[in-house]
């Protein structure tokens, strides 16, 4: 009832407005790019370990695998940083206090998989990014499920259960 009265007054008097302003560049945030990038890192490690050719051909393939590993490790870190910096708010950290540690782990492992060809570190990197994804979807009240990625290296991956 009060709102109706104010609305009528507004049409006659024209009240000033105050903006409850939001930054909505697109509102689209999704950790899947980081997850695919982390999986790509492990895939490159596997290709590097299985490389059988010799000579220049081998050097060429190895260089390419390493370059892709470098690129995707950094891409995964970049995507997590964007969500961490632009989407995550204090109330998310309060609700998920482990989040800060998970993001830090992603950053550290993201560096380790660039420095080495250690597959265990690569798998740990995938797991850390999945942990981040799980928390991200929890902040949106979206249930998640775990399933093996339908492509090599077929590691367990967190997906929104829509």
């Amino acid at each position: 009832m009060f709102h109706k009265i104010f609305q009528t007054l507004d049409t006659k008097l024209g009240f000033e407005e105050a903006k409850a302003h939001c930054d909505v560049p697109c509102g689209i945030y999704d950790p899947i790019v980081a997850q695919i990038s982390a999986l790509t890192v492990v895939r490159m490690m596997d290709l590097m370990a299985g490389l059988e050719s010799e000579g220049v051909a081998r050097d060429n393939s190895m260089s390419r695998y390493i370059a892709v590993k470098e690129e995707h490790a950094e891409k995964a870190k970049h995507e997590v940083r964007i969500i961490w910096g632009d989407y995550i708010k204090d109330q998310h950290v309060e609700a998920h206090p482990e989040l800060t540690g998970v993001v830090h782990k992603v950053m550290q492992l993201g560096s380790k998989v660039r420095q080495t060809a250690d597959r265990e570190a690569g798998v740990a990197f995938v797991e850390a990014v999945n942990q981040f994804a799980e928390i991200f979807w929890a902040t949106k009240n979206v249930k998640t499920k775990k399933a093996k990625a339908p492509y090599a290296p077929a590691l367990e991956t967190v997906y929104p259960d829509l």
Partner: peptide, 15 residues
């Protein structure tokens, strides 16, 4: 006193 109309969603869902 002053009356103001709200636009935008940054205080949603309350405002």
């Amino acid at each position: 006193l002053k009356i103001i109309k709200i636009t935008g969603e940054s205080l949603s869902p309350k405002y």
